[in-house]
Design a protein around this nucleic acid. Sequence first.
DNA 1: CCTTGTGAAATAGTTCACAGCA
DNA 2: TGCTGTGAACTATTTCACAAGG
Lengths: 211, 211
Amino acid sequence: MPLEIPEVVIDRLPVYYRLLSRLQADGTAVVSSQELGLALGVTPAQIRKDLSYFGRFGKQGRGYSVQRLTEELRSLLGLKRRWKVVLVGVGRLGRAIASYRGFEPQGFDIVGTYDVNPEAVGSGADDIEVRSVADLQRDLTVGPVDIGIVAVPGTEAQAVIDVLVCAGVTAILNYAPIAAQVPANVEVRQIDPVLALQGMTYHLNRRAGQP
Amino acid sequence: MPLEIPEVVIDRLPVYYRLLSRLQADGTAVVSSQELGLALGVTPAQIRKDLSYFGRFGKQGRGYSVQRLTEELRSLLGLKRRWKVVLVGVGRLGRAIASYRGFEPQGFDIVGTYDVNPEAVGSGADDIEVRSVADLQRDLTVGPVDIGIVAVPGTEAQAVIDVLVCAGVTAILNYAPIAAQVPANVEVRQIDPVLALQGMTYHLNRRAGQP
DNA sequence: CCTTGTGAAATAGTTCACAGCA
DNA sequence: TGCTGTGAACTATTTCACAAGG
């Protein structure tokens, strides 16, 4: 169990965890690295090696207890507690994020939503209270949060991220189309469908040459 | 210019392209790998090496012409043409994707939207026509598309992906929380905010130990 | 003097292959 | 027998460092 675990390994753990959760719900008791690898499209060796960074969770000749491994991953990933999240930006995208039902069951609670223009939001039947971004810094001092989700236009995103970081938020999920500048101790993950599409059109374009 | 270009390199090109586009809009004429690296949080050597897989686009002592490099990247990434996209799944998430304004300016046209339950969608003021997924296979045969965006529940996602792949779609943007099974010639990119959050909670959790 | 492009060196990550245990 | 855990081998990726050009 070395002190330096590669970031790629950490980013695969949630993928393993998600599959394990499903297997557990399906009532599967035991699973081998072979079976996991098949379902996820990765090699069994990689799964065993990844898990071996954190402990010995399997049984030789048998495989892994689904129950046990799910619990270990929950623990490793910090999913035994709930996490406080603020959402900044409540435009079209922000509203979709605010109403997404997938966060809460996984332990992520959106405890505040902010926008430069808070009154523009009470338009629908959605019952979310939106505060002004001007209040963000103060609110974070009063009630700290763990994670910030940024869904403002690219032009405003860095300023919002700066406020979050200054207020001590050390994890940011960035939907804005910019490369966020943050100190080394702050985690950032980028969600950007356009970048993903453009990575694929490279291949589509290339294939158009010799089909 | 070797024949085998690493996938990580290809996935960074859109990031470079996005920044270059902004610089061009701002009227910047020339930029060095140092400046690009600073703005993106990567090393200048990496940018030079990445670009060198595709050609020699810079001028020694000067840097890169923003105009020239933007054009080269547009060309490499296949962004000089428009791409036809279908969206499958028009629930909460699918509607947000359908109404997202960021695809069209980048050359991605959503030419069809599908749902198992097409009539449920005409609820708002949105003017999108939604067809039944039952029609998907036939429609794709009549008018092929380049890219499929999957925004259906996890339980249905693999079936939808199978239909797309069988119909010859070789690029899939998957918003469903599953590890898609596809043949080797099909590109898949996953958009999953929960996985991204869980990758960050690992670090938050760990830090809670020794702050 | 400044900055590219690039082999070579260094680092990082993956896969192999097998000892060891159930 | 079947499968894990893991050093060692291999492969991939990043960074260095410098020749060469403007």
